[in-house]
Write a protein that binds this DNA or RNA. Structure first.
Length: 631
RNA sequence: GCCCCCUUAGCUCAGCGGGAUAGAGCAGCCGCCUUCUAAGCGGCCGGUCGCAGGUUCGAGUCCUGCAGGGGGCGCCA
């Protein structure tokens, strides 16, 4: 929170203590509803009235007296308004320069540690993206990656140590599908077609052929078996294919400025015996049992309640090892989760992964000696960015940790659940789907080729922005920003009803609007000479737009901290939009600074614009969006 | 059947631990470019906050029930 807000909260809190209402009411300090009331207000007397059995107005008067004596920094005076608010009026002459100075001092290399301290001491490991290696990323995957990337940025900005993993699903049915397709359908890539997009196409085609060709389905079973068995030509082919797909997927993500510290491969988890070790631990703790009868007969399962042999056959027991001895996805995820916390007692081997300009490391069955593995895993907190449909599986993973006695780690296993991206009726019909009356949402289907690919969407956005943008670079930055903002501004619990028109819009509550506001501020600073130096004192009276803009700037730390604590990009996105709005409003409603003749006013307003630009730029960076000097 | 999410303006959504007159964007209508970037700004229009109870001085916000919509409960991943 802003320094002022923190100071006000402390002052109100201790005043409440002195009138005997401490602890009985929550100390709420909020921006005043109307400027006539003041700048900050607290409704505390309303709540205190009950415990003190006195009228709110009388309590408010008492608080006002105490707060007057308390001499809070930047506060010019206190007032009382019905039905029982106490309001602080700020001393703008001292407050405004302080806000501006703080904003101008923002430095990417110096973290903005929240007032309450770090959420978690030590490393936070974030897993996101997590796409099967048989297809190109669509906007659903992109929502995942944007959320994960922005959470990582926000946590880093607030002083947390963060490690980002991209867990790569390179085994399983979907991979087998594409192997079958590549080996037996004879399809060839189109001119310049990225390999992941080619695989998407093969996947759709092979899925279609299964319906008429049962022999293909049998082939898939064999391929799947070979992949699981490893050390054969099919497994090597699948691995090679997966590598090429991942390169293409990462290239897509890089267009959105999304990167990773470590690529973790499901096949390495198998190869390096992670599951066997986890299995050992789980058996030792009695967390898994071999089901003798019932529909799970022959499977190793984790019963709902610990150590309950009879429950093994119950329907809600989660199968971890199938009767053919193959570990399920959840089982591998448990092993991986144990590794993330440094609890497995095994480590990956590591290799460098050449991926353009970013240093990335990948896990590998055969490693390089000079890579220090202690940089990875051993986390204090784990955040898994996975859509809400997988909530029950994530609970099983968490439960497994608890069963092994790692209750703290189980509590620090966060499933950052977000709702999926679906197609709006309009978008669905644009993609050629049959649209029913009354139905508003339509699921993507990679298998049927009904999806919006991330690359394609970005290409369309770039093309649309190209003619108005200053150059190609600007168009790309704006396009990526627009899409990221669109995917991040919704609450995690909202399904995004994807709509092309909305996603590509450039006016109003959009990424382009934020970037435009930043570029406008940059334009002013270019045209109005001046720069660092002594703090600029404000004019005797702030105009409403100046006051509003200062308020927004002052709220940055608070918004960032809230977004970090709640792992919520949407909170920061909303803040950034409010800040950009305040900046645009200021821009439109105050005289042009270049022509300002009063040097004091000119200096102050220039500094105010610089402060707004600095803050907006910081927020945009945290949101994974470029903060352009020109558009 | 059990569990999770959603329901606020024509549409898409904000409204955080309950607090002063429910906000924004889009769409529609009307204005504003000899002015630092009009990708902007202002105005108008538009809401029994799904329904019914309850708690409270005070409920869009908390509790209970109901309704509608979406999702999850696999030896898939």
């Amino acid at each position: 929170m802003s320094q002022v807000e923190a100071a006000l909260r402390r002052a109100v809190g201790s005043a409440l203590d002195r009138i005997g209402a401490g602890g009985a009411v929550e100390v709420v300090v909020e921006p005043s509803a109307r400027p006539e009331f003041g700048d900050w207000s607290t409704p505390a007397p309303l709540g205190a009235a009950r415990v003190l059995r006195r009228s709110p107005m009388a309590i408010a008067e008492d608080l006002r007296t105490l707060l007057d004596e308390a001499r809070v920094q930047h506060v010019a005076g206190w007032s009382v308004t019905a039905p029982g608010y106490v309001n602080a009026r700020l001393d703008h002459a001292s407050w405004a320069p302080a806000v501006i100075d703080t904003a101008l001092a923002l430095d990417p290399s110096r973290p903005l540690i929240p007032d309450g301290g770090l959420t978690v001491a030590g490393r936070t490991l974030i897993e996101h993206t997590n796409i099967n290696t048989n297809k190109a990323a669509h906007v659903g995957h992109l929502r995942n990656a944007c959320l994960g990337d922005t959470v990582a940025r926000i946590l880093r900005r607030t002083g947390h140590e963060v490690e980002v993993n991209n867990y790569i699903d390179d085994t399983g049915v979907q991979v087998a599908d594409v192997v079958v397709g590549l080996q037996h359908l004879g399809l060839t890539p189109r001119e310049n077609e990225p390999f992941d997009q080619f695989c998407s196409r093969v996947y759709v085609e092979v899925s279609r052929r299964y319906e008429s060709d049962p022999a293909l389905v049998e082939l898939r079973a064999g391929v799947l078996h070979d992949i699981e068995a490893r050390d054969n030509d099919t497994a090597r082919f699948a691995k090679e294919m997966a590598g090429r797909v991942v390169r293409a997927q990462l290239a897509t993500m890089r267009r959105f400025d999304i990167g990773y510290d470590l690529l973790t491969w499901e096949s390495d988890i198998l190869e390096l015996g992670f599951w066997e070790r986890a299995f050992q631990l789980l058996r030792g703790a009695g967390a898994v049992v071999l089901a003798q009868d019932g529909r799970n007969a022959g499977c190793w399962v984790m019963p709902e309640t610990s150590g309950n042999e009879a429950a093994a056959e119950e329907e809600d027991a989660k199968v971890l090892v199938k009767s053919d001895g193959v570990a399920t996805y959840t089982a591998k995820d448990i092993a991986y989760q144990l590794w993330k916390f440094g609890l497995l007692g095994l480590d990956f081997k590591y290799r460098r992964w050449d991926e353009g300009d970013r240093p990335v490391t990948t896990t590998a069955a055969g490693g390089e000696e000079d890579i220090d593995g202690s940089r990875f895993g051993r986390a204090q907190r784990v955040v898994n960015v996975i859509d809400a449909r997988q909530a029950s599986l994530q609970r099983v993973v968490q439960q497994a940790l608890a069963r092994l006695g790692y209750t703290e780690q189980a509590e620090r296993s966060v499933h950052l659940a977000y709702e999926v991206v679906a197609l709006s009726a309009t978008a669905a019909s644009q993609l050629g789907m049959e649209v029913d009356e009354g139905r508003t949402l339509y699921a993507f289907s990679g298998r049927r080729g009904i999806e919006v690919r991330a690359d394609d969407l970005l290409d369309v956005a770039v093309a649309q922005l190209r003619d108005k943008a200053r150059d190609e670079r600007a168009a790309r930055a704006l396009a990526a920003g627009a899409i990221r903002y669109y995917l991040q501004k919704f609450s995690l619990t909202q399904i995004i009803a994807f709509d092309f028109r909305e996603a590509l819009r450039v006016t109003g509550d959009t990424g382009v609007y934020l970037q435009y506001a930043h570029a406008r501020a940059a334009g002013i600073l270019r045209k109005v000479p001046g720069g660092a130096g002594t703090p600029a004192p404000p004019p005797a009276r702030l105009v409403p737009q100046e006051r509003a803009l200062l308020f927004r700037i002052d709220g940055y730390r608070s918004a960032l901290a809230e977004a970090g604590a709640g792992l919520s990009p949407a909170v920061l996105a909303a803040y950034a939009f409010d800040l950009a709005s305040a900046l645009s409003d200021f821009y439109e409603h105050t005289p042009v600074i270049v022509r300002e003749t009063d040097p004091a006013v000119r200096r102050f307003r220039r500094a105010l614009v610089a402060a707004a630009k600095s803050t907006l730029g910081d927020a945009l960076t945290a949101l994974g969006m470029e903060a352009p000097e020109h558009v």
